[in-house]
Amino acid sequence: MATAIEVRNISKQFVLRHTRSLKEALVWLLKGRRGDLSQKFFALHDVSLTVEQGESVALLGFNGSGKSTLLKHISGVMTPDSGTVRTRGRVAGLIEVGAGFHHDLTGRDNVYLNGAILGMSEEQINERFDSIIEFSEIGEFIDTEVKFYSSGMYLRLAFSVAVHTDPEVFLVDEILAVGDEPFQRKCIAKIKELAAEGKTLVVVSHDLDLIPQICERGVLLEKGRVVLDGPVEEVVGELRRR
């Protein structure tokens, strides 16, 4: 099996205090870069992770442990301070459903816009349009502006577009808790189906009962470091003990 994602010794530091004003930055520079503008911390610290094609991996850890940051590095949204990230094939980063949806556009326009943002071509969207609508069960509301959707409907449509992008690698961040109970089951079934089709999945979720149903492998992050990497039951068990 070929490698789908290769993360090698990446580190990422963030500053604790951002400034948006030139005046503050100048004062700071004149003072010889002293003071709180320069305070940094490691969001990721020497993280390495190799994911083979077709694997489904769960990223686990407490709030602020760096899971979303790691996904953003894999999707290319962020670049590491040191180390390298390489991926094979198209990667869809579903960091948040509905990023790229515009409230004043209709559901239909949003399907096209969001589909294109996630990397689909015009023909691909045309081809999958009916299937996207069917999966979302939006029905006749498709030509309504999405600001009039209920929040569940909004998420359904967004999720439906996302799973129809058909990439090699799926990065899923906390989006499994979408919609009502039946739709949630449908989403989880869809994700499992993708995994069964041999897609590579990296899933972040705090739902420790759900995770073992989808993933075989677990990676535990703590304060930006990988502390455990193994079979998912083991890692979930470890996280529960903490």
């Binding site: 070929a2 999707s75 991926t87 094979r88 094939g89 990667v91 294109a116 090699e168």
Partner: peptide, 24 residues
């Protein structure tokens, strides 16, 4: 599967040329 594709660094664009590629 498309194992013919190479491992590449994500998030590295080709600048303005990309806007032409993403003209849709």
């Amino acid at each position: 599967m498309s194992s013919v594709e190479q491992l590449v660094r994500p998030g590295v664009g080709a600048g303005l040329a990309d806007t032409f590629r993403s003209r849709f």
